[in-house]
Design a protein around this nucleic acid. Structure first.
Lengths: 210, 210, 210, 210
DNA sequence: TTGTAAGCGAGACGGTACGTCCGGTCTTCCG
DNA sequence: CGGAAGACCGGACGTACCGTCTCGCTTACAA
């Protein structure tokens, strides 16, 4: 991201002004009404300067989110797996809310139509977070809180899926109670019954499924 | 949708031409490059005629999808719950694929920025399907294939969530094996361990699933 | 000029507003600082409307001059050839003054770099005037005020040439005395020495001139 | 022209490269499409270097012409006045041709909109030539080839005027025959009929001319 | 002989205007 | 009188150059 012509000579204060203006305008009018012209005007910057370093408004917003994100990137680990998952999910809910004005939502919408942007989005924002999420789950597996053969991709789908489902279909984000319930259900699906005899049989049926 | 000035006097052949042109152009260039002007030109219709009956290009596409959807709307019920769920999910996967050119995906992207369109989208395409889905699950509860107190909203989230998650983040739709696994996990999550007698019946239905 | 897409549907009031704005802005800032954007803004018109009907700002200014010119197009004929010529030249001096802000001068400058504009300029503004000029001279020949074999192209060059010479080289337009002298010299050059009797008549008419 | 900050330290090879690039680009694309950026790029020079020494692209072109001109500056004097005038005019015709790509024409066009440039143009290129021209005419007067009271400004107008007239109005430069005729007419206009004795001498010199 | 100040290449920067595209409204005329 | 045709105003697009402004670097004069 932003590795244009000659990054050495780049004017950092312009870069900051552009990102700040982008954030302001996005919050004010929503991503959809965001305009390169308006960003340039608000930031007191020539349009050229934006086009020199970013290929589209989506890329600007992506860098904005990227910068904000790196501030809080380490995955939480309190020892309480369910609580940590709720923390991770709550963070994402915050990012996706309110649906119609959140920069992240707008970015996702644009990326749905723009493969290049989609690629950058996945590379810069999403994959690192998925990695952190899986890392936390793997630690849980090591601690025996999750069955050793649990499918982490399934876990990813089941835990984050509901948020994007609700975002996409405008169903409203889950309230804390719902979230609790979702996490509990998913953990149950990933941790077979404990009593010795039962656990054995369960493991067998899983083998048949997967 | 399309309840303009005086629907009685409406020219049906123009309507069809517009929808057909919309579909063609969407497939050719993707939803993002779709333009009211291009639709009008391709359909041999004045722009006025489009604006008279639809408020935005999203609404046109919505009607297009609506029309296509009503052809296959009745929820399947073969008695095999897992299979029926896989059928429902597979249909949605088809609609959302390929991500960057599917009209449905484009529509979802636009609705993320346009509350009015989001409302119509939910009302016309989504809620009926959710209702059908829940109806199917309720029938499963009645048949004892699902615990009587299973939370159907959670089921909805867990089953459809992964699809929208993957769409939004460009992770690729689940292949049949993954889908299988997802459905199996979710059904397991919805049939929690119970006192012995109950557990026996449940185990029977699981057998049917796997 | 201005025979675009479908001249029938053209909005005449927009056309007038554009020409009026063009004239104002040209007088205010000079032709060089004239801008299509400014014209559109001042006229309360979309840029598209200008580009639809004119290929360049030069073409707009040309139409402006054309419209102004047709109001006073008939060549003067008072019977006094020298006076009529001075009238014609004075009119052109007026059009070319002040050099740096006159729309006509700007147009000539632009046409020097733009062959298309040059063609339209010659066709619409210049050739009709040349024709009128030659017509007047021919009438003078018929009246015996000019030798029958005088070369009218030479006359054209010698009479109008000085004005463009001075415009091009920023030498200042001739004052009335100079103009007088120029006309006198040229008329003398066009009435070469002849057998005595003839020369007498000529000298008389020359006296009238000087 | 080009008397910047500290002319002593000036890099002469850059100066030459700039002038050369200017000439090339002007011939290739015409003065109108000439750009400071393009000159700098072609010359392998920073834009700053151009702006340091010249105030505008017009000034660069002016210096270019100036340099070319000084190579052939002395006014011809073969004793044959008419021939010498034809030589002078022919040289100017060469400079102004072809109208749409000649650097001189472009410069004149630009100067019509830019008083500063006009001033430099007159000072550096035009006035010296006018002086030379008048000097030649004065020598002709001294030799009795021209009447002693002939108005040299009128002569200037009548001889050079046609060229600029034709340039400005895109009428095509005079061919040799025309040129001949023009010079002959003008010389005749400058040697008016006089008392018999004088007239005889004059007529003789005219014979030599025409 | 070594600063130090200039000229220089490179090119980022804030701007202005370009000419195009499309959105949404309004008008005209045809069937 | 509905609809095709399309002109219209407006606003944003992405591009081209403008003229100014740092950057390091070389280069030549002065201490």
């Amino acid at each position: 991201m932003s590795k244009g012509p000659n990054a050495a000579r780049r004017n950092e204060s312009s870069r900051q002004a552009i990102l700040a203006a982008t954030e302001d305008l996005c919050r004010e009018n929503g991503y959809g009404r965001l305009t390169i012209e308006a960003i340039a005007a608000r930031a007191g910057v020539g349009k050229t300067t934006i086009y020199r370093w970013w290929p589209s408004k989506g890329a600007v917003v992506l860098e904005l989110l990227d910068q904000a994100a790196t501030l809080a990137s380490a995955p939480p680990d309190t020892g309480d797996l369910a609580a940590d998952l709720r923390t991770l999910l709550t963070e994402v809910i915050g990012i996706l809310t309110p649906v119609h004005t959140s920069p992240a939502t707008g970015l996702i919408a644009e990326a749905l139509q723009d493969p290049d942007l989609a690629h950058d989005l996945r590379e810069h924002l999403i994959e690192p977070r998925i990695a952190a999420f899986k890392q936390r789950l793997r630690r849980a597996q090591d601690a025996g809180q999750l069955s050793a053969d649990a499918d982490l991709d399934v876990a990813l789908d089941l835990l984050y899926g509901p948020l994007y489902h609700r975002m996409a279909l405008h169903l409203g984000m889950p309230d804390p109670g719902h979230l609790d319930s979702l996490v509990a259900h998913v953990l149950r699906a990933l941790t077979p019954p404990h009593p010795a005899g039962v656990r054995e049989r369960r493991r067998k049926s899983q083998t048949g499924v997967s």
